[in-house]
Design a protein around this nucleic acid. Structure first.
Lengths: 212, 212
DNA sequence: TAGATTGTTAATCGATTAACAATC
DNA sequence: TAGATTGTTAATCGATTAACAATC
C-alpha cells in the first residue's frame, strides 16, 4: 500500500477527467490517449499520465486507455461507484433549484432530504419532477437527529450567510463529512470535515479583472 | 506602469480578500493586518502581503491596512467599483433561481436580461422580488442582437449541456467577454473570452475522495 | 515488425514561506 | 521611543514539463 499522501491538486483534477471520460463513453468512444483526453480537459498529456500514475497503471503502451476500465477505476478512487445521499439545508430559490435538479444521479449523488427553519415552509412539498412529489421540507430543529439516523454524510448549505455557521455546526454534529457551501463566507469546521465553496460573485470577479 | 503579467492564481485570490474585507467593514471594523485577514480567509499573512504588493503599497508599517481604502483599491483592480450587467441564458430551475437571487448587487453585478429557446417559456415573466416583476424571458434567437445592443459583457450559462456550446458561440458573437458556465462540459471559446465553470457534482466528488 | 503511447525520471518552472530591514 | 507590521528578498518547497526507455 502506498502511504504517501496524494496532493489535493491531483485529487481536484480527477473528477474533471471522469466527467470527460463519461461524456466520451456516452458518445460511444471506447478508448482514448492521454493526448486526446488532455485536449478535452485543457490539461497536458504528461500531467494526466502523472496524475493517474499516483493510483496505478491504467493504460497500455501503444494503445492508451480503455475508457470503461478507467471510468470504473476513477469512480472507485473518488468513491462514486456508490450513490451518496445528500441533504439540502435552506430552501430558498437555490435550495429548491438544487432539490429539483435531475443531473446528479449519474454522477454519484442524490438528494434525500431537505430542511428549512421558516415555519411557513416547513411541511411544504418540493417536487423533484413534475409527476412525483417526493420531498417534505423538514424543520431544521430536527436536522441533527434526522441526518444522523439516515446516515447522510454530505450536505449542501444554501441558507443566508447569517445562519450558515450555525447550520454547519449542526451538520458536523450530525456526522456530515462534506459540506458544499453556497453561503458567501468561510465556514469553520474540524479538519475531518471537508468544505467546498461555491460563490458565483467570486467567479464573476475573477473574470472582470481581465475585461478592459 | 508595470507590464509584468499578474499570475492568474493571485488574481483568483483577490475576490476572496475583498469579500472578507467587506464582511469586516459591514461589522464596523476599520483596519486590519495581513495576519488577521489571513486567518479569516485561510491564507498565510506573507502570501497576502506578497499578493497585494503586485498592485501597489496599500498598508502602513506598524498599523496594517485601512479597510475602506483597501476595499476601494481591490474593487478598482477587479473592476467592480462599477456594476456589471449580466445576461442569464437558460431559464430552467437554476436560471430562475439566479434571476431571483438578490445577493449580487453589492458585489458588482446585476442581472438585466434572460433568455430561453422554449416557446412555452418565451414571454413569461420572472419576478426578481415579490412585488416588482421585472424580467420577460426573451427568445434565444434574439440573443446576439439584444446583448450586443445593450452592451452586456457577462453571461451566466444555465442551459442543458446539449445546447451549451451553441449558446456560448452566440454569446461570443454578441461581444460577451466572460461566461459563468453551469453546464457540465468545457466550452471552447477564443482566448479573449474568459470562462469560469461551476459544476456542483465536481465539487462533491472532490470531497468524497476523502471520506472513508 | 514498426508505430504509438505509456509510466517514470530528471530538469524546469513557479509558487509559497521565512526572514528582516524599513518605517509607521 | 518601543512595538508592530509592512513590503521585499532569498530560500524552500512543490508542481509541471520534457524526454525517453519500456512495451503493447
Amino acid at each position: 500500500m502506498n502511504t504517501v499522501k496524494v496532493p489535493d491538486i491531483i485529487v481536484s483534477r480527477l473528477p474533471v477527467y471522469l466527467r470527460a471520460l463519461q461524456r466520451m463513453s456516452d458518445a460511444g468512444v471506447v478508448s482514448t490517449s492521454s493526448q486526446e483526453l488532455g485536449e478535452k480537459v485543457g490539461i497536458s498529456a504528461a500531467q494526466i499520465r502523472k496524475d493517474l500514475s499516483q493510483f496505478g497503471e491504467f493504460g497500455k503502451q501503444g494503445t492508451g486507455y480503455y475508457i470503461p476500465f478507467l471510468i470504473e477505476r476513477l469512480s472507485k478512487i473518488l468513491k462514486v461507484e456508490q450513490v451518496w445521499d445528500v441533504a439540502v439545508v435552506g430552501m430558498g430559490e437555490l435550495g429548491h433549484a438544487i432539490v429539483r435538479y435531475q443531473g446528479f444521479g449519474n454522477r454519484g449523488f442524490r438528494v434525500v432530504m431537505c430542511f428549512d427553519s421558516d415555519p411557513g415552509k416547513i411541511g411544504n412539498l418540493v417536487c423533484a419532477n413534475q409527476s412525483d412529489c417526493t420531498f417534505v421540507i423538514r424543520d431544521t430543529k430536527d436536522l441533527v437527529r434526522d441526518i444522523r439516523e439516515s446516515n447522510v454524510k454530505l450536505a449542501m448549505l444554501c441558507t443566508p450567510a447569517s445562519a450558515a455557521q450555525e447550520v454547519a455546526d449542526q451538520l458536523v454534529e450530525a456526522g456530515v463529512r462534506g459540506i458544499l457551501n453556497y453561503a458567501p463566507l468561510r465556514l469553520i469546521v474540524p479538519a475531518s470535515v471537508k468544505v467546498q465553496h461555491i460563490d458565483p460573485a467570486i467567479y464573476l470577479q475573477r473574470m472582470t479583472f481581465y475585461i478592459d
